[in-house]
Design a protein around this nucleic acid. Sequence first.
DNA 1: CTTAGGG
DNA 2: CCCTAAG
Length: 401
Amino acid sequence: MNEVKEDELSVSTLEDETIEVEHLFAEPKTEHVSVDGVLSFGDASLGKCLHIEDFSCGFEYGLTNNGGLDSNTTQEGEDLQLDVLDGLLDEIDEVDDLDATNGLSNACECEDFLLDIEFAENATKLDLGRSKESCLGNSSSESQSPGLSGSSNGAVGISESSSVTILESECKNDALNKTATCKLHGILVSKCGCRPPDEDSIHATSLELTKLDDLNSDKNLLACGISSAGGEKRLRKPTRRYIEEFSDKKLEYMKRGEKYSAGMRRRALTVIPEEKSLGGISVPAVSQFRARLGRPKKQKQVPISEIESDKELVSSESEDDGVTKKISKKHDRRKHQRMWNPSEVIKLVDGISEYGVGRWTDIKRLLFSTSAYRTPIDLRDKWRNLLRASGAQKPTKKGSS
DNA sequence: CTTAGGG
DNA sequence: CCCTAAG
């Protein structure tokens, strides 16, 4: 997971990063962005970049700290890391879409653009523990996150607050990670900094996204050897079709998430054949509904296992389910098949434990309000799959055979 | 309209 | 994921 390719170049890395960003800003000619726009936002962007750097470093530090130091790895740490990663993934995901959208019609989509971004950010913050929601008042969804998210709150807060201090001393992450984080926070910053849908912020964001895309592409290349995207081709066919194809790329990226769940499930099955044990998780669930079946085991298994599986899978081999995206493309019937990353599964399980199984709409509205995809039916299907994977018999007793 | 079940 | 039947 941590390649630490630029381990010692910590400080210089920052500079590089900044320079790169600058560079990007300097030559957005690839896009059909008008020069005026570039000039106008160039200055602001610079300052923004700095902020981003700070943030990213601090952020990354938090990650690295939790992930790297096994000695101090508590469930909370795991959760934190997980959430953060998921947040990043989600963010990237959303951003990709946004970017694509921008590419095809950056002129008119401004509002939607921003809205989406805000949403994404919102979601991320929720995942992280919604530390500061003052920036935008549109936080329509109150995170219901019970125990898991709650635990991560403190950790995240720490990492953020202490970001400035450690940013220069402890930046030991690969460029990719940093970049991702950079983008993430770039959005955050841009959002918080410029509430109104200014063209500046939009452009800046899109640019950052572009850069990110490139890097992501690189990552994908490294990981899977699939050459998918460049920065410019994006403009070519700005059809919806393209967007879908484009998102395939991120699917690659998201596969990690899938991996999590896969590993988790496997482990759950292996280690805990029965769902009896639910001691670790404090489920604020209603006693009525908590009579559920295989859910508890999953919930408790998720945080720890998925991390482990993540490391193993990612480090050892990077892929197996490259098929998913391809098939999805072939048959328009099955749209995209968004992979369920662990955090989503957790949210789902939480929601079920909270509102009871069958209340898919409620769960969707309350816990997945930020996820445009994921219809209530999807939730139900996922749950069904989880049950099946858990080897739970549907009728009779719940798998306690 | 939402849920459950099957494809 | 999609579709359909049933509440």
